[in-house]
Design a protein around this nucleic acid. Structure first.
Lengths: 143, 143
DNA sequence: GTGATTGCAAATCTTTTGCACTAAA
DNA sequence: TTTAGTGCAAAAGATTTGCAATCAC
C-alpha cells in the first residue's frame, strides 16, 4: 500500500536517528523530506506547517531543526547575517545565493574544484569546506 | 614627523571615501587599520574603543561599520549564524574559521583554485565567491 | 507512571531606528 | 547657519529558555 510509505519513511528516519517520533516531528520530517532538496528557515517551515494544518509552535520548530541538525538529518547553511537556513541535502555540495532575495541553489561538489588545501591555522584540522557563489539577478536578462 | 602619520592616514582614508572625519570615525579608523588585517564584530570594536578611552556608543559603532562597508573600506564576513564580522582586508581572499571560537584567518585567494564556474541560476551573474574552511582545534596537537 | 517533548511567554542577543542634541563645513 | 553625525533609549527580528502541561514508552 503506497499510501503508507511516506509515513513509515518519516517514522524510520526518526527512529534511525534515535529521535522519539512525536506528532510534531513526524509532520516536520514529512514537510522537510517529501519534496526533494530544500533550504528552509525556521519561520518558513513554521508557515508551511500552519498551511498544512499542522499545529506546531515556532519554538518547537526551532528546537526540532536544531535536534535534526545535531542528529545529522539536516545541515545548517549560513549565508546571510541574520538568518539560518536548514538544508535537507546533507551530502557534500555547495551553494549559490541570489542577492538580495536570499534564495539558495545547490552546486554539486564536483562542479567546484579546489586546489590542494591551503595551510590551515596551526593546530587545527579541516572539518568542512563551504563555497558560496554570491550572484545577483542580471540587469540584462539576455546576457 | 612620524608621530603624525597615523593621524593623517586615518584622516586621508576618510576623506578619500567622502566620509566626514568626526572624532568617533577617526578613532575607529585608527583602531581598525593601525594593526594589520583584522576581523572584528561591532561589539568587539566597541569594547576596544572603550578600552582605548574612546567614548562611542554601540549604535554609532554599528552605523559606522555599515557606512565603512558601503564606502568600500571594509568587507562584511558572515560565517556564523547570529554574528557579523567586519574585515579590514577588502582584497580578494577567503577565510578559515575555527570552531567553536569563531576566530577567523585569511586564506590568500591564490591558495584556493576554483574550477571553471559552475552553471549559475538562470538570469543571474556572479558577484563574489566566498570560500570558508571550517576547522576545529585538533585533539592531537602533534598531527 | 516516568521521563522526554511541547507550547507559551518571557528573555536574550544582535542590529536598526527615531529623535533631540552636537559638531563639521 | 545648515546639514551630517552622534547618543540614547526604544524597537525590531531571530533564536533560546523556563516551566507547567502533555505525550510516548
Amino acid at each position: 500500500m503506497i499510501g503508507t510509505r511516506p509515513f513509515s519513511q518519516a517514522l524510520d528516519r526518526l527512529k534511525r536517528h534515535g529521535l522519539r517520533p512525536t506528532r510534531q516531528r513526524l509532520a516536520l520530517v514529512k514537510l522537510l523530506f517529501d519534496r526533494g532538496d530544500r533550504h528552509l528557515t525556521a519561520d518558513q517551515l513554521h508557515a508551511e506547517a500552519a498551511a498544512a494544518g499542522v499545529r506546531v509552535s515556532l519554538a518547537t520548530v526551532y528546537n526540532t531543526l536544531n535536534q535534526f541538525t545535531a542528529a545529522g538529518l539536516l545541515r545548517e547553511v549560513v549565508v546571510e547575517a541574520g538568518r539560518s537556513y536548514f538544508d535537507t541535502n546533507t551530502s557534500e555540495h555547495h551553494h549559490a545565493m541570489v542577492e538580495p532575495t536570499g534564495e539558495l541553489f545547490d552546486i554539486p561538489a564536483g562542479d567546484v574544484r579546489l586546489s590542494a588545501l591551503p595551510p590551515l591555522p596551526p593546530g587545527t584540522k579541516l572539518r568542512r569546506v563551504d563555497v558560496i557563489l554570491r550572484v545577483v539577478k542580471s540587469q540584462d536578462p539576455a546576457s
